[in-house]
Simulated assay, not measured.
Amino acid sequence: MLLDGEEWSNRFAAIRHEAWRLETLPQYLVPQEAEDLAAFREGRSLAPYTASPYTERVSRQRVEGKYNGRVHIVTQPLSSYLEFEFSRYYGVHVGAGDDIRILDVTGRPNPLEGVQDFWMFDRSEVVLMNYEADGTQINRTVFEGDVSAFVEYQRIAVAESVPFEEYVDGGHPA
């Protein structure tokens, strides 16, 4: 099943316990970010990013005892997109209650090699995030089948990663 629009948004609004994402790409081409990303790459200053509907939802759900998290798999040197994402969004998202972790696989085997991006909701539904090689999203599809492999991918990703703040405080670029 393809997901878009309100049907996609409802997945986040309806979580009972957890929404969790695995990010594997060095770049995501998101139309809403194009202007800010271009300014960042050109060294122009950007208006501060402080909140969004995403951060407001995460904050509200955190107060309700719900969990939002992700692990982003990266290699050094970081792409300019990841530098942008780290410096513009991740700190604000963490401040809102998003548990963002980084799995740096520079110089070591990737324990999740070949696993594609996905969102998992309440460890019972998986939505596969389908992208072109350049990070342009193709679509989102509901995974039809046993989600236990994705629960294991989440376990591995969390076990092998570090919190975003620890990653950037450890001298890695942000």
Rank of each mutant, 00 (worst) to 15 (best):
G145Q: 09
M1H: 14
E113Q: 11
L37K: 10
A19Q: 08
E18C: 04
Y131M: 10
E166D: 14
S9T: 09
V151M: 09
V162Q: 10
I138V: 12
L37M: 11
V105A: 03
Y67T: 15
N68I: 04
S148A: 15
E160L: 15
E160C: 14
Q137H: 14
R57N: 02
R101F: 06
D36P: 03
Y131N: 09
V126L: 03
T136R: 15
R62F: 06
D104M: 03
A39S: 14
W8K: 09
F40V: 05
V158Q: 08
Q137Y: 09
V115N: 06
E160Y: 14
Y49S: 07
E7Y: 05
E64H: 05
G5W: 05
E160F: 11
P48Q: 01
V158C: 07
V142F: 08
Q76Y: 09
R62V: 09
S87Y: 08
S59V: 07
L29C: 14
Q137V: 12
A159V: 01
N139A: 13
E152R: 11
Y90G: 01
G95I: 03
I156E: 00
S161V: 05
F86H: 15
E42L: 15
G171E: 10
S161C: 03
S9K: 15
D4S: 15
M1V: 14
S79T: 08
R62G: 08
D117S: 05
E113S: 10
Y28Q: 04
V92R: 12
E56S: 14
S45P: 12
S148M: 07
Q137D: 05
A34P: 00
Q137L: 13
E7I: 06
V30D: 15
P111E: 00
P26F: 04
E64P: 06
T24K: 12
E56F: 01
F84P: 07
M1T: 13
F150G: 00
V94G: 02
V158G: 03
Q32H: 13
A149C: 02
N68G: 08
Y153P: 01
V92T: 11
I156F: 01
M129H: 14
A39W: 09
A159Y: 02
E33F: 07
G5H: 06
A149K: 04
E83I: 03
V30Y: 14
I15E: 11
D4A: 12
L46H: 10
L103D: 00
A149M: 07
E125M: 10
R70N: 00
S59N: 10
V94K: 03
E152V: 03
I15P: 10
V30C: 07
L2I: 14
D122V: 01
R123H: 11
G97Y: 02
I138R: 13
H17I: 06
G171V: 10
W20Q: 00
D4R: 10
A51I: 00
V94Y: 10
S79V: 02
L82H: 07
V168G: 06
E35P: 02
G5F: 05
S148Y: 05
G69S: 07
S80Q: 15
M1I: 15
E113K: 13
W119V: 06
A159F: 01
L103Y: 05
I102L: 02
